[in-house]
Simulated assay, not measured.
Amino acid sequence: MYVPKTFAQHDTATLHGFIAHTPLAIVVTNGEQGLLASHLPLLLVQDEGEHGTLYGHFARANPQWRILQAGEEALVVFQGAEAYVSPSFYPAKAEHGKVVPTWNYQAVHAYGRAEVFDDRERLLALVSTLSDRHERNRERPWAVSDAPAAYIDSMLRAIVGFALPISRLEGQFKLSQNKDAANFRGVQQGLQQSERPSEQQIAQAMAALQADA
């Protein structure tokens, strides 16, 4: 990922936190069939490996897991909130007009080579942990054990798991850091007034960035 220094995020704890709050990732590989991408919910184990380890699973019918099994490197993309930035947000528009549209966003890329597995107990532990992670805030959380054992066994036979130790972790939080204070505030205020939740989230991220400065 091309990451200008102004927008680069290097803090591992911050990147891990972003991944934890953006669990649906895009796993990209390049093999004999060319580029393939799958949208998968992933689990990050932060203290496993130098940069953490990602766990997930493919449908067995998905040929992409075989590319991982062959040892090819994968790119995992975590895309967060994004927002169109109108030139009208900038006070500079009225001053000199030398402004153009852009886009603010937050994204993290992780790279690594994965271990593929399909033994029942390990898959059961993975899907149980994933389910518990996303059900825990519900009033009546669903658990894998709520389903009939024979049904769960059939579901486990239909998937292939993987563990991907992260060899490289990159973050780009493009939040108008390259603008002066007046134009930064103009973008933040403009996005705060948006009806799009994603644009409001970017405004909140900008506020947090300003508070940390």
Rank of each mutant, 00 (worst) to 15 (best):
150 A>M: 08
90 Y>Q: 01
47 D>V: 03
52 G>K: 01
61 A>M: 06
87 P>H: 04
137 N>P: 06
141 P>E: 09
36 L>M: 14
41 P>N: 12
47 D>P: 05
24 L>A: 07
40 L>T: 09
29 T>R: 09
46 Q>M: 09
73 E>C: 03
96 H>Y: 05
102 T>V: 06
32 E>S: 13
89 F>S: 00
144 V>A: 04
31 G>T: 00
143 A>T: 15
46 Q>F: 02
87 P>L: 07
77 V>K: 06
69 Q>H: 13
86 S>A: 10
65 W>C: 09
69 Q>F: 07
116 V>P: 02
100 V>A: 05
51 H>P: 00
43 L>K: 08
99 V>F: 02
84 Y>T: 03
34 G>A: 05
72 E>M: 12
151 Y>E: 14
112 G>V: 06
141 P>N: 08
83 A>H: 01
48 E>Y: 10
88 S>C: 11
122 R>V: 15
37 A>R: 03
44 L>W: 06
71 G>S: 09
126 L>F: 09
139 E>R: 14
104 N>Y: 08
24 L>D: 14
65 W>E: 01
58 F>P: 00
62 N>W: 04
114 A>H: 01
67 I>W: 07
138 R>P: 04
126 L>T: 05
66 R>L: 15
126 L>Q: 07
141 P>H: 05
105 Y>E: 09
145 S>Q: 15
95 E>T: 15
30 N>D: 12
91 P>Y: 00
100 V>D: 04
63 P>F: 08
93 K>A: 00
72 E>A: 14
112 G>L: 01
78 F>T: 00
150 A>T: 15
82 E>F: 12
139 E>D: 13
64 Q>S: 13
72 E>N: 13
35 L>F: 07
115 E>T: 13
118 D>L: 07
99 V>R: 02
25 A>G: 10
73 E>L: 09
66 R>K: 14
37 A>Q: 12
129 T>G: 12
41 P>L: 09
51 H>K: 14
71 G>H: 11
98 K>H: 02
133 R>K: 15
127 V>T: 05
60 R>A: 07
91 P>D: 06
29 T>V: 09
104 N>K: 02
72 E>S: 10
116 V>F: 08
34 G>V: 11
83 A>W: 07
39 H>R: 04
49 G>V: 12
